[in-house]
Design a protein around this nucleic acid. Sequence first.
DNA 1: CGAAAATTTGACATGACTCAACTGGAGTGG
DNA 2: CCACTCCAGTTGAGTCATGTCAAATTTTCG
Lengths: 195, 195
Amino acid sequence: MNYAPFLNYIKNFVDLNEKEITFLRSYTNYKKYFKGQYIVQQGEVCNHTNFIISGCTENFYIDQKGQEHIVTFAIENWWSSDISSFITQKPSDFNVKCLEDTEVIQFTCQNQDEIFKNIPKMETLFRKLLEKALVSSQKRIVNNFSLSAKDQYIYFKNQYPNIEQRVPQYMVASYLGITKEFLSKIKAHLVKNKS
Amino acid sequence: MNYAPFLNYIKNFVDLNEKEITFLRSYTNYKKYFKGQYIVQQGEVCNHTNFIISGCTENFYIDQKGQEHIVTFAIENWWSSDISSFITQKPSDFNVKCLEDTEVIQFTCQNQDEIFKNIPKMETLFRKLLEKALVSSQKRIVNNFSLSAKDQYIYFKNQYPNIEQRVPQYMVASYLGITKEFLSKIKAHLVKNKS
DNA sequence: CGAAAATTTGACATGACTCAACTGGAGTGG
DNA sequence: CCACTCCAGTTGAGTCATGTCAAATTTTCG
């Protein structure tokens, strides 16, 4: 079990003393998932928020037509859960699935409340994380408005340079909301006209 | 000046005692804007978060091609600001403009910090609001993936029944990310095939 | 090596956009 | 009260970005 990356991450934002760290440890736990395993399954309640120590997850759903859509990826030092299900404790509309063997630090909804009650700094941290997540979610909507599929792909590559090599291309297409065939054509076009 | 709706709103989530209410009042202020007035202008820092007592605002930006895109509307009991600029205190990419005469309760970034420091319940409230905002932002991305323009329009009408009558149709189109002409055609089609 | 999965390519289809012309109210001023 | 303009909305013809489907090719991995 490998707890240090989690504490290092937190240290970037707030300072915790020994007692707080001990508390935090006792209200979180380590878990290892294997490639292909589901952390959350559509229809089940998402019981944990997960901080990724190593590995990679996708968050996707299946729509009425049976088509799969990837909403987010998450890698080391990111958070992964279905926040909607987690906060309401109602069945999730999404799946969270491991694309690689994945180690996480996780906590339940009740434990999150305990942590926030006992370490208010942690609530401040989470509020700020949520602010940032909201900004980047809005940014994605804005890009959808203004950018062609090609430009959205370029934006994605710049913003998440580490992800493209780790996931198959058809998943990138799904994340961008386009077909795998069309992404393939975009890439062919980029190779021809640039570099 | 009309402060009660703000307190009523807060009372839905947390209980504040007299002292806390007094504190809150002294760290927020009331302001009235007129129809057409800008609360935030693209390029300026968004100094305030605004809670709308009465009226209606739009949050929009102008893209490279000079085209206007509405990102959000806000009406009574909603929050209105450019959160990205507010939290970073950097120039905003968006405009916030009043579509009607609009009364708000507002506070600055520093005052928000003071409020959270002195009334931790308020930070909890904001964390929860941010969670919900993030969920609905993600929901919009998901709808973009799965729904045709027509179905997105239907969804919009159901979710925001109060807004459509208050803003012109071309703004609804902009919010949905489609052209006004196409929305007009969608509506004609809906009238013919249903009702 | 062989099978399955992922990617590429091409022909064709379609949802949504563009542009331009038209309709119909809502002022505004004479 | 009419004539004029302005703005929002409608309609239609043509176009373009992206999707669909199917076949061919490449990569991955047991």
